[in-house]
C-alpha cells in the first residue's frame, strides 16, 4: 500500500516539471461528478435531491477557473465534494483526479488544508473564540508556523496586532485578507474560493479578487465559485457556467463580449444579456427543482431554441471553439 503510493507520487510529480511551459496538465480534473441527497421532508417521508448532475471541469496550475451560477444552486457543494466535506446523507459518483490520481476520501483528508485550501464565504468559518493569529498559524502545519504567519500577514498588509484579535473584531476588508492568508499559508497548490466576496463594497471585492489573481500568477490553480459574473470576468481565465447543478458551458473570458454571440450555450447568452451593463433582458422562468429535474436538457423548459429532441435526451458535453458546451444546437 505505502509502496504503491510512493511510486505513483513519484511519477506524478515528475510530469508537471517536465511539462511546465508546454500545455499544462490539469491539477484538478472532475469528470461526470454527480451529488445527490436523501432528505426527510416530514415524518419519515423522504425525497431525493440531485444537486450536481454529471459536472465536468478542469483547473490547471496558473489559471483561475470561475464557476458562475446563482446562489443556492449547489455551487458550494461542488467545493465541498472536492474537499470531501459533504454531509453524511450525500451520495456521490463520478471521477475526481488530483494530479492525475484518484481523489479518494483518504487522500482528500490528507490534502485538505495542505495542498487543497478553501477560502470560505465569511469569518463564520473561523473559530469565534480563537485569536486570529493562532488560527492562521494552525493552518501552517510546520515547525516555523509563527514565521510563516508573520510572512503572510506582511504579504496581505495585516498589522501585527491583528493576530491578537478575535474574528468578530475584524472589519470586512480585514476579514477577507485573513481568510485568504489562512488559505495560502500552507502553500496550497489548489485554492478553492467559495463566494469570497458576498455583498461587499467594490473596493474590497477588487482587493480580494486581486489576491486570487496573484495566487494564480504564482502557478497555483484557483477555482473561484461565485454568483457575480462581472467580478469573475475581471480576473478569471476561463468561466464555467453553472446551471441546475451542471456546467452547461466552459468559455474563455474573451467570449463574453458584445451581445454574447461568441458564447456557446443559450443560458450563457441569456445570462450575459441579463446584465445591467448590457441589455438587462429578463428571460422568464426559473431553474428546475433538484427533486424534479427534466429528463432531457436541464435548460430546455426555459429555452427559446429548444426542439423535441432537447426534451428527451440529456446533451453530452462536447468541445467547441476551445471551450465546452452541453447543447445539441450549439455551433
Amino acid at each position: 500500500m505505502s509502496n504503491q503510493t510512493a511510486v505513483s507520487q513519484n511519477t506524478s510529480t515528475t510530469i508537471p516539471e517536465a511539462s511546465t511551459g508546454g500545455t499544462m496538465m490539469p491539477l484538478l480534473d472532475v469528470r461526470d461528478l454527480s451529488v445527490s441527497f436523501v432528505q426527510y421532508t416530514g415524518g419519515l417521508q423522504m425525497r431525493f435531491l440531485t444537486v450536481i448532475t454529471s459536472l465536468s471541469l478542469t483547473v490547471r496550475p496558473g489559471e483561475i477557473l470561475a464557476v458562475v451560477g446563482s446562489s443556492g444552486s449547489g455551487k458550494s457543494l461542488l467545493a465541498h465534494a472536492i474537499l470531501g466535506i459533504l454531509p453524511n446523507n450525500a451520495r456521490i459518483s463520478g471521477t475526481m483526479l488530483y494530479v492525475n490520481e484518484d481523489l479518494t476520501p483518504e487522500r482528500q483528508m490528507s490534502l485538505r488544508g495542505r495542498e487543497i485550501a478553501l477560502v470560505p464565504q465569511s469569518v463564520n468559518f473561523l473559530d469565534p473564540l480563537m485569536r486570529v493569529g493562532f488560527q492562521v498559524r494552525s493552518a501552517a502545519h510546520g515547525s516555523e508556523a509563527a514565521k510563516a504567519q508573520r510572512r503572510v500577514f506582511d504579504r496581505y498588509h495585516l498589522a501585527d496586532q491583528v493576530k491578537g484579535l478575535f474574528p468578530f473584531q475584524l472589519s470586512g476588508g480585514m476579514a477577507r485578507r485573513v481568510l485568504v492568508a489562512t488559505a495560502t499559508i500552507s502553500d496550497a497548490r489548489l485554492v478553492i474560493a467559495d463566494e469570497p466576496t458576498p455583498g461587499l463594497h467594490p473596493a474590497v471585492v477588487k482587493e480580494t479578487l486581486n489576491h486570487l489573481r496573484e495566487l494564480a500568477d504564482e502557478d497555483r490553480a484557483v477555482m473561484l465559485i461565485t454568483h457575480d459574473i462581472e467580478a469573475a470576468l475581471t480576473i478569471a481565465d476561463r468561466i464555467a457556467v453553472f446551471y441546475a447543478g451542471t456546467t452547461v458551458e466552459i468559455a474563455l473570458v474573451a467570449d463574453f463580449t458584445d451581445n454574447g454571440e461568441a458564447l456557446r450555450h443559450p443560458y450563457s447568452k441569456a445570462l450575459w444579456r441579463a446584465l445591467a451593463k448590457n441589455e438587462f433582458v429578463a428571460t422568464p422562468g426559473a431553474q428546475p427543482s433538484p427533486d424534479a429535474l427534466p429528463p432531457g436538457c436541464l435548460f430546455q423548459p426555459n429555452c427559446k431554441i429548444a426542439t423535441p429532441e432537447c426534451a428527451s435526451v440529456r446533451p453530452k458535453e462536447r468541445e467547441l471553439r476551445g471551450g465546452m458546451v452541453r447543447c445539441i444546437h450549439a455551433a
Partner: peptide
C-alpha cells in the same frame, strides 16, 4: 436593501423588471 446582491444576473433582471 441589496435585494439582488446575491442573485444571478437573470434573476436580478426578472426581479427589477
Amino acid at each position: 436593501d441589496e435585494i439582488t446582491a446575491m442573485l444571478d444576473a437573470i434573476t436580478q433582471a426578472q426581479i427589477w423588471h
